[in-house]
C-alpha cells in the first residue's frame, strides 16, 4: 500500500511561470485521492544559482525540518528543487556533524533525518503505480509525445531515480494514457540550456533548438516535461528561438501531469491548459 499523503513542495515557479504545472499536480492528486499538504512557509531550494553546497544544505534543512515536524514525506514537481532537496537530505542524513553545524545557525534548521524526498514522476510511477493509474483512466490521450526528461531525473547518480541517458518513467505514463512516445533518442535527457538563459542566451537557444527540432523531426504532436526551467525554455521562449534562427517549430509543450490529468478526465481549465504559452488546443482535440 502506497503512502497516501505527501508534504507538497511547489517550488518558486509554481506561483508564476509554471502555474499550470502546479494546477495540474494538485488536480491529478485530488482525482487520485492522494492528499497533498503544502509545506507551511517553505523557502527556495537554492535552484542552480546557489553554488555553495553548504548554503543549499542549510536552506533545505529548513524545508526538511518543516516536513519532519508534520510527519510527512516531501513531493516536488520541479526537477531542480528535487535535486537540491534530495542531495541535502542525503548529506544531512549521512553526517551528524553537518546536522549539528547547520542546527547551530538557527533552531528552525534542526533536522533529524526522518523525511524522504520524491519527484512527482517517481511518486506517480513508483509509489502510486501504473496499475492503479491505468484503472482510473477515463479518456484516451491519442497523441504522439516526445518525452523530455532533462537533467535531474536521471542525473547525477547520487539523486537519480531513472536512467541517465535512456530514462523510461515518462514513457510508461504516456503509454498508460493511450499516447505514443516517439523515438527521441539521446535528446530525452539532454540539457535544455535553461541555466544559461539569462547569461549566455545564444548558447541556451542553441541547446533548446536541438531539443525542439529533435521532437518535431520525430513526428511529435507535443513535448511532455516535468521541470519548470525546461518549460520556460521550450515553451515560453519557443517563439524567441524560432525568431533567432528563422525557423518554425509551433510545438505545444505540456507538463506530464497535464497529459495525465486529461486522461483522468479532468477539465482542461483545471489543468491550466490555457496557461501554456504555445497553444495546446491541437492536443485537446486528440483526447477521446
Amino acid at each position: 500500500m502506497s503512502n497516501r499523503k505527501y508534504g507538497y513542495y511547489p517550488g518558486c515557479p509554481s506561483e508564476s511561470t509554471a502555474i499550470e504545472q502546479d494546477m495540474s499536480v494538485k488536480a491529478v492528486f485530488e482525482k487520485l485521492g492522494v492528499e497533498l499538504e503544502e509545506l507551511e512557509d517553505w523557502n527556495c531550494c537554492g535552484a542552480a544559482e546557489v553554488e555553495d553546497p553548504e548554503i543549499v544544505y542549510a536552506l533545505n534543512a529548513r524545508n526538511l525540518a518543516i516536513a519532519e515536524k508534520k510527519g510527512v514525506n516531501i513531493m516536488t514537481p520541479c526537477s531542480i528543487c528535487y535535486y537540491n532537496l534530495e542531495r541535502s537530505n542525503k548529506a544531512l542524513k549521512g553526517s551528524e556533524e553537518l546536522r549539528a553545524k547547520i542546527r547551530g545557525i538557527d533552531d528552525s534548521l534542526a533536522y533529524n533525518g526522518g523525511v524522504e524526498v520524491k519527484h512527482v514522476l517517481d511518486v506517480l510511477v513508483n509509489d502510486i503505480g501504473i496499475e492503479e493509474l491505468s484503472g482510473k483512466i477515463e479518456k484516451k490521450v491519442n497523441v504522439k509525445v516526445a518525452p523530455y526528461y532533462g537533467c535531474y531525473i536521471g542525473r547525477p547518480p547520487l539523486t537519480a531515480f531513472d536512467d541517465p541517458d535512456a530514462p523510461v518513467l515518462m514513457d510508461q505514463l504516456i503509454e498508460a494514457i493511450g499516447g505514443e512516445a516517439v523515438p527521441f533518442d539521446y535528446r530525452k535527457a539532454k540539457c535544455c540550456g535553461g541555466p544559461l538563459m539569462m547569461t549566455m542566451q545564444d548558447i541556451a537557444f542553441k541547446m533548446a533548438r536541438d531539443v525542439l527540432e529533435g521532437a518535431k523531426n520525430a513526428g511529435a504532436d507535443c513535448i511532455a516535461l516535468a521541470c519548470p526551467l525546461c518549460g520556460m525554455m521550450l515553451d515560453a521562449k519557443q517563439e524567441d528561438i524560432e525568431e533567432a534562427f528563422g525557423i518554425k517549430i509551433g510545438l505545444p509543450v505540456l507538463y506530464i501531469t497535464q497529459l495525465l490529468g486529461l486522461a483522468l478526465g479532468i477539465d482542461a481549465s483545471k489543468l491550466g491548459l490555457n496557461k501554456n504559452v504555445v497553444d495546446t488546443k491541437p492536443i485537446l482535440g486528440k483526447v477521446v
Binding site: 537533467c151 536521471g154 542525473r155 547525477p156 547518480p157 541517465p164 540550456g193 544559461l196 547569461t199 549566455m200
Partner: peptide, 11 residues
C-alpha cells in the same frame, strides 16, 4: 562559466 551543470559528465 559556460557549464550548464547538466551532470552528464558526473554521471
Amino acid at each position: 562559466w559556460v557549464c550548464l551543470i547538466c551532470q552528464t559528465c558526473t554521471a
